[in-house]
C-alpha cells in the first residue's frame, strides 16, 4: 500500500500538469511528487523528432519536459510557493535519447531563498544507461503576500 498523502499529492500534481496546454500537447505524466522532488515523463512521438534520419527526439522537447519538472519540483518544495517561473535553465545533452522510448525527467529543488529556487534535473530514456541530459536552473519563487 502506498502512503495516502503521497497519492493525493501525485493526483494534485497530475491535475496541475494537465491544466497546462503544452504539457497536455506533449502527454506529460506525473510519476512521483515528493518534498522538492518531481518526476515527470512523456512518450516518444513522431512529431517530436528532431532528426528524421535517426528518429531521435528533439532537444527542445526534452527542454520542455525538464523545465516543467523543474517548475513542479519548486511547487512541491515545502517553501509552498504560490507560483514559479523559469529565470534560467541550462541543459547539457550527454547523448541521443533512444528513439521510441519514454523520457523521464527527475527534478530536485535543492535550495530556496526568499525569492529564488535552485533546481537540478536529469532526464533518462528506458535503456537504463546514464542520463540523456542534465539541467541546472534558477526559478522565481512567489510566496504570495508581501511584494
Amino acid at each position: 500500500m502506498s502512503d495516502p498523502t503521497s497519492d493525493s499529492r501525485n493526483r494534485l500534481a497530475q491535475q496541475f500538469i494537465s491544466a497546462l496546454p503544452h504539457c497536455r500537447a506533449l502527454s506529460m505524466r506525473v510519476e512521483e511528487a515528493a518534498d522538492g522532488v518531481a518526476v515527470l515523463s512523456m512518450p516518444w512521438a513522431e512529431e517530436l523528432v528532431g532528426d528524421p534520419i535517426t528518429g531521435v527526439i528533439h532537444g527542445g522537447a526534452i527542454s520542455a519536459l525538464m523545465d516543467t519538472s523543474g517548475g513542479a519540483a519548486v511547487l512541491c518544495h515545502p517553501a509552498a510557493a504560490m507560483s514559479t517561473a523559469t529565470m534560467d535553465l541550462r541543459i547539457d545533452y550527454m547523448r541521443a535519447a533512444a528513439p521510441r522510448e519514454r523520457i523521464t525527467a527527475r527534478a530536485v529543488c535543492h535550495h530556496v531563498t526568499r525569492s529564488v529556487a535552485f533546481v537540478r534535473a536529469e532526464a533518462f530514456d528506458e535503456s537504463g544507461e546514464g542520463p540523456v541530459a542534465v539541467a541546472n536552473g534558477a526559478f522565481t519563487l512567489d510566496r504570495g503576500g508581501d511584494r
Partner: peptide
C-alpha cells in the same frame, strides 16, 4: 497556438516552448 501555453492563468508561453524555439532557430 493555444497548445504552446504553459501558464493558462497569465497566459504565457511555456518556458520549454521558448527554449525549443530558440534551439530550433540556432540549429
Amino acid at each position: 497556438d493555444e497548445k504552446l501555453i504553459g501558464n493558462p492563468a497569465l497566459p504565457a508561453l511555456h518556458g520549454g516552448v521558448t527554449a525549443a524555439f530558440l534551439e530550433v532557430t540556432a540549429i
